[in-house]
């Protein structure tokens, strides 16, 4: 935990805005065979902000955050996380960077063969080796209470609804006190009420754990509820960047069609 606290102090400030940059992506390119998914991405995530990445399906939103944690290797470009270049670092250093990042998967990705308690214990035992038995249990209970499911401790993932799985998955990421949160389509496949609850949780996590987050979504309501800043991807590049008001007032045909269509829904 000590190194994470030190990390919080050593994040570098951005010269242009005087804000601390936690993720800095330059010229990121990624293709699969002949299909160019990301052609030229430039992106900065500042400390404490919620950055929403919007875009149609297949524009490379999920690929972008998978490149940040090196689940996918970028073809070219640089990705700096907390001042460290991740695209070229060795496995040991990568493991250390990953310990500071929480990743909420689209499917929740809970381990089916484990109970909720074991699901939460799994990352704690590996990332927070300084914690022991009763303290681990206390942290797990606290994380579950924070996502509104304090009684789910001994439940199996198969007994949970889609929304509950997402909450438990969120609890599994926050239980290790990450500095950065990456959300991959957090509200996809959920009803509007549960989606709103997840959006509220994202904001609560940001306030309580002081995280900086990238939220990948195509759900405008989720973006409205969570975004400090929005980036829209199109054809592998950042198409537009601004606040939710900028997007609402935009006359750009692509942006307005995207927003209008979703507002009608």
């Amino acid at each position: 935990m000590k190194d994470i606290q030190e990390e919080r102090k050593t994040m570098k400030p951005d010269a242009s805005t005087e804000r601390e940059v936690v993720i800095d992506i330059k010229n990121l390119k990624k293709s699969f065979g002949k299909l160019d998914v990301l052609t030229n991405i430039h992106l900065k995530l500042y400390k404490g902000e919620n950055l929403v990445v919007l875009g149609k399906s297949g524009t490379g939103k999920s690929v972008l955050i998978k490149c940040i944690v090196r689940l996918l290797d970028p073809d070219s470009g640089t990705i700096e996380v907390l001042g460290q270049e991740v695209s070229t670092m060795n496995n040991k250093d990568l493991e250390n960077v990953r310990k500071k990042i929480g990743f909420l998967f689209q499917s929740g990705a809970l381990y089916d063969s484990m109970t909720v308690k074991q699901n939460l214990e799994f990352p704690v035992n590996r990332i927070r080796k300084d914690l022991k038995g009763p303290v681990i249990l206390q942290k797990i209970e606290e994380a579950l209470a924070n996502v509104g499911l304090p009684d789910a401790l001994n439940t199996m993932p198969s007994e949970l609804s889609g929304g509950m799985r997402k909450r438990i998955s969120l609890a599994r990421t926050i239980v290790v006190d990450p500095l950065i949160m990456l959300y991959d389509e957090p509200t996809t496949g959920l009803d509007p009420v549960t989606s709103d609850e997840i959006s509220l949780l994202i904001n609560e996590v940001q306030k309580k754990y002081k995280t900086s987050s990238i939220i990948i979504t195509h759900d405008i309501e989720c973006a409205r509820a969570t975004a400090d800043r929005i980036i829209m991807l199109s054809e592998g590049e950042v198409y537009y960047e601004g606040t939710i008001e900028d997007f609402d007032n935009s006359t750009d045909p692509l942006i307005s069609s995207f927003f209008k269509k979703q507002n009608h829904e």
């Binding site: 998978k66 944690v69 689940l71 493991e95 250390n96 990953r98 310990k99 990042i101 990743f103 998967f105 689209q106 499917s107 990705a109 809970l110 381990y111 089916d112 799994f122 990352p123 590996r126 990332i127």
Partner: peptide, 13 residues
């Protein structure tokens, strides 16, 4: 398929 292996990898495992 359900991204559990990816989840393991990002949990520094």
């Amino acid at each position: 398929v359900t991204e559990q292996i990816d989840a393991m990898e990002v949990s520094a495992t």
